[in-house]
Write a protein that binds this DNA or RNA. Structure first.
Lengths: 116, 116
DNA sequence: GTAACTACTTACTTAGAGGTAACAACTATC
DNA sequence: GATAGTTGTTACCTCTAAGTAAGTAGTTAC
């Protein structure tokens, strides 16, 4: 297996990326993960972080992230029931790719604003 | 500016990410960029790399990437007109985030397969 | 002149992502 | 028992990303 052609390598990477994209695609998943990278949070707190998200979308996307083992939901049996969301190890391992993406994003802004 | 609260930091990152996401979101943009990271290519060659993409989507997404300064389109005045697509510096600078994402993707596969 | 190849474009349709709004369950307060 | 504050859920609607299929423009081959 020492020799892999460039096109085969490209092909393999395309497949791996597809899997990763399925998990984090959509308008809200990455924002939710970023919010949770800054600490475990309750439903209402994530809502405040991501002002534009509706409760329906937040609930739905949290559920999807839970199914994909990115997020854990913990229910506390307090007086007004409290629910806390936190990242799994797998979820936290998204920090590096997302940090790189954010670095790229701020550079992108600079280049586009300068170029316009 | 030495002191920035954690929540402000989170807020800022959410905004930057939003910009980055707009550029690379959708089912096809990242695959197209990955294909071009493996060399400048013609329309038909990208089509072959990403077997499932339709000519309409490829044309449309290439145009969008061009508008966002990620891709450059060069027309060669040859007998059957030849068009070549390549990445700009800005486009090539996506290599690092995408590599990180692919690394994460292959780890994700392992964890999910093991856990199921 | 007609068939075939490349590189797209256009028109039409569909699926599902996302939005809005109202409701539900629980407790506390008046 | 009516009102309000959490933490969501449900039903319904809309809109856009993506898919399908056919067409166009230029050249080559016969």
């Amino acid at each position: 297996m020492a020799h892999v052609t460039k096109s085969k390598e490209c092909d393999r990477k395309l497949k791996v990326t597809r899997d990763a994209l399925e998990v984090i695609q959509g308008k809200w998943r990455i924002p939710i993960i970023i919010s949770l990278l800054y600490g475990d949070k309750r439903f209402g707190e994530i809502s405040k972080d991501i002002a534009e998200i509706s409760p329906k979308m937040l609930s739905q996307e949290l559920k999807a992230l839970e199914e994909n083992k990115i997020v854990v939901r913990t229910v506390y049996d307090t007086m007004p029931v409290t629910v806390e969301y936190s990242l799994t190890d797998l979820g936290r391992s998204l920090k590096k790719p997302l940090d790189e993406l954010m670095t790229w994003g701020s550079n992108f802004r600079k280049v586009i604003l300068r170029g316009a």
